[in-house]
Structures are given as structure tokens and as C-alpha cells.
Write a protein that binds this DNA or RNA. Structure first.
Lengths: 215, 215
DNA sequence: CGGCTAATGTACGAACTGGTTCGTTAGTAG
DNA sequence: CTACTAACGAACCAGTTCGTACATTAGCCG
């Protein structure tokens, strides 16, 4: 039971305070956007004060960048955990598509942050040292699957890994990113839990069908 | 040469002033989001003053709603202009998909406004009387195409019009909505003019392939 | 041409907001 | 136990931002 934190009950705990600020900030930025988020509000929802935000992060923008970095870490890890060994190409790409779909629908905050970051033309993402050019493992994974599919003659030969990833991402992101406008305009909530399994199957069907059609 | 506007040279022209405000506001809101947009900035980019924005529109929020309404009018009209008579079901749905793709890639401001509106959970869209429940013509169009396809036995029979519309919209919206994050992370600009024809063909292939696969 | 109203411009203010200044306290090294 | 530093809190400040009060003018109608 020798807990590694010898001073777990500290009132002053830098790591904990920073983590709490990041948690609250993630929610606030995802909720209201960069300009809409209020530093005072983030501070108020924390057990600490605004002073600490500036003490640990330097400012609103740096805090936002840290939030972005932490959010992207989530998918990176999910992507690296994907294992398609033992699956034939079609099963493999379907599996990846479904996992991507599941991850996105379960991480609305992340998708919202990405939307927000695009409104700002990814200027903060570009400023991040960790994210700007961190290799993306999915592309390699997809490349491998596509190669196998081509070899076996079951996939079209003009399919590109990045393009396929975009196709999958499109359908995985849309329900979350456009939930509200789509929902009010068409009277159907794309995130309705009752339709989730249906849409998961749909992404898979879509990619596999696309890849199987002639080059 | 008898110009129809008898008072074209008026210094005071209500209609013109309002239209100019809306044009500038559309750009400003699409560029910086609702919270990020500055009423003073919109006024400065106009030939009139901030006073007029409040005189004609009432406030920042009402102006934003008008901007939204005008932006949505664009697709509504484009959708109603679509004509698929004489095309077989596969050709018809491909045509619609390509038109949707073209429209979205050519109207980045609109897509950005939609993204922004989703960040705000479509609260402004809901407040709009003209938009909240304006029937969307595409759905009927797609329904018709799907029905014909089913009758001819060339389309799967479990495809739903709204779902198919979502599939097409996903792929048409993504390159515009996520251009910058996707571009920096994968080193490929999804709106690169050189790849546009390729992606247009890809949406078509995707939907048709999906619809042709077994139920 | 006189007067009436829509249209317009200027200046201002109250509230907000990111960021800072100054001072305090908990925890720890020696 | 003492001294030193990381961690922290409260109040404050300067610049912004939406919105408005007040004064003014263009253009039309009779």
C-alpha cells in the first residue's frame, strides 16, 4: 500500500492544480470557443485562482494550446492501440473505421476543439511544438491494409491512405461536429444512441464498398 | 441608358446600407466566430457607422442571425435547382453528390458559419423563424432517387434519405471545415485545386458503391 | 418651398476582460 | 528550528466592447 505520493493530502500540489486547470479549461474552450472562453470563468470553476493560470501557463493562449495538445494525445494513443493482425483487409479497414467512429462520438469535446481550431486556421496548432509535425500512426496502418488488399486483388488500386483516412474521419466527425444544425434542420439527432450502431455499421459498409469497387 | 434606379446616387440608401452591412458581417463572423467578431470592426469596414447596425438590425446577435439566414438561403436555392431527370439512379445520386461537394468547397464562409453555429449548439438557428423548420428539398430529391434505385434492384433497400444526405454532406463539408488541422497534421491541403476533381469523383464513387452493396 | 420623417454621425459610458502587482503561506532543506 | 522557495490569493488596472443618447441632415410629399 505504500502509495507513491508521500504527501497526497497536501493543500499545495502543483501537479494537481495544473491538471485541474487543464480539465476545466478543456470544457470551457470546447464549450465557448477560444474568444468566447473566459479566463475568469475557468478560474472560478477551479479550486484555485486566475493568478495560478498565469503562474503555470503564462496566458490564455498558452493554456489553450496545452488543452489542444492534451486533447490530441487522446486519439494518438487510441490509434496506436489499434490492432488488426489476423484480420483480412476488408475486416481490418472496417474495424479501424468503427473504432474511429466510436472514439469521435465519445469525445465530443475533442471534436469541438478541432472545429474551433479550424475557425482559427490552425494557428495555435502550428505554434505547438509537440503537435505541429507529430507523425500520425493511422496513415501507416491504413497504408498497410491497403497494400494487402491490393495484393489480394480485393481493393481498388488507386486508393490512397490519407484519402481513405479523410473519408473515414469525415463520417466519424460529422455527427458530432454538426449535431445541432443537422438535428434542427432535419429533425434527427445524429448522435441519438438508438442510431449509433446503425451509423457504425454504415461507416464500415461505406469504406469497404468504396475500396471494393473497380479502380 | 435610362438606368432603373432613379436615385442611384443617393447618399442615403437603406437597402444598400443593409446589404453592405450583411456582406461585411458575413465575412467577419465567418472569420472570427460569433464571440470573436467585433461590431466596431464590422462598422469600420462599412461605408456607414455602428449606429446603423443597431438601427437596422437591433444588435450583434440579431445581425448574426440575419447573416446565418442569408447564408442558408444559398444552398436552399442550389438544392432546388438540381435536376436529375433523365439520369438513372446511380448517375442521379452521383450528380447530386458532386454538386453538393462543389457547392460546399466554393462556399467556405457558409461552412465556417455552420461550424460556428454548432459550437453554439445551434441556439441562433433555433431563434430564426425562417430557418428553424424550413423544409429541406434535398431529402425529397434523395428519397425519389433511392426509391427508383430500389425498384430497379440496383440499390440496397435499407438506405435512408437523411442518412445518405449525411454521408454526402460529411465528405463535402470535411475538406472545408477541417482544412487547416488536417492540412497541418497530414501535410496535405484537402482544398488543393489540383486534388479537387479527384475528391469530386471520390464522393460519387463512395455513395454509389455504398448504395450498390447488399442490404 | 416648408415641414416631416427616415436615415445618419459623434461622442460617450458602463460593464467586462486579460493580465499584473503586491503580499502571504505551506512545505522543506539543512 | 530557521531560512528559503514554490505555491498561492486578493485586489487592482488598463484596454476593450457592446450598446446608447443626442444632435443632424437628406429627401420626399403636399
Amino acid at each position: 500500500m505504500s502509495d507513491q505520493p508521500p504527501k497526497n493530502s497536501r493543500l499545495r500540489d502543483a501537479v494537481r492544480t495544473q491538471a485541474e486547470i487543464l480539465d476545466v479549461a478543456t470544457r470551457e474552450f470546447a464549450e465557448r470557443g477560444y474568444a468566447g472562453a473566459r479566463v475568469d470563468e475557468i478560474a472560478a470553476l477551479t479550486r484555485t485562482t486566475k493568478r495560478m493560470i498565469y503562474y503555470y501557463f503564462g496566458g490564455k493562449e498558452q493554456l489553450y494550446i496545452k488543452v489542444l495538445e492534451r486533447a490530441y494525445t487522446g486519439i494518438r494513443e487510441a490509434e496506436q492501440a489499434v490492432d488488426v493482425t489476423g484480420l483480412d483487409p476488408a475486416e481490418a479497414i472496417r474495424h479501424l473505421a468503427e473504432l474511429t467512429f466510436d472514439h469521435h462520438t465519445e469525445h465530443a469535446d475533442f471534436i469541438r476543439l478541432v472545429s474551433i481550431e479550424n475557425i482559427h486556421r490552425a494557428e495555435h496548432l502550428a505554434k505547438s511544438e509537440t503537435l505541429a509535425k507529430a507523425g500520425t500512426p493511422v496513415i501507416d496502418l491504413i497504408s498497410g491494409i491497403l497494400a494487402r488488399g491490393r495484393e489480394q486483388g480485393v481493393f481498388r488500386d488507386d486508393a490512397d491512405a490519407v484519402d481513405v483516412h479523410m473519408m473515414i474521419s469525415s463520417f466519424a466527425v460529422f455527427p458530432v461536429a454538426n449535431q445541432h444544425t443537422f438535428g434542427t434542420l432535419f429533425g434527427r439527432d445524429p448522435l441519438d444512441p438508438g442510431r449509433r450502431a446503425h451509423y457504425r455499421r454504415m461507416v464500415g459498409d461505406m469504406v469497404v464498398a468504396y475500396l471494393r469497387t473497380g479502380s
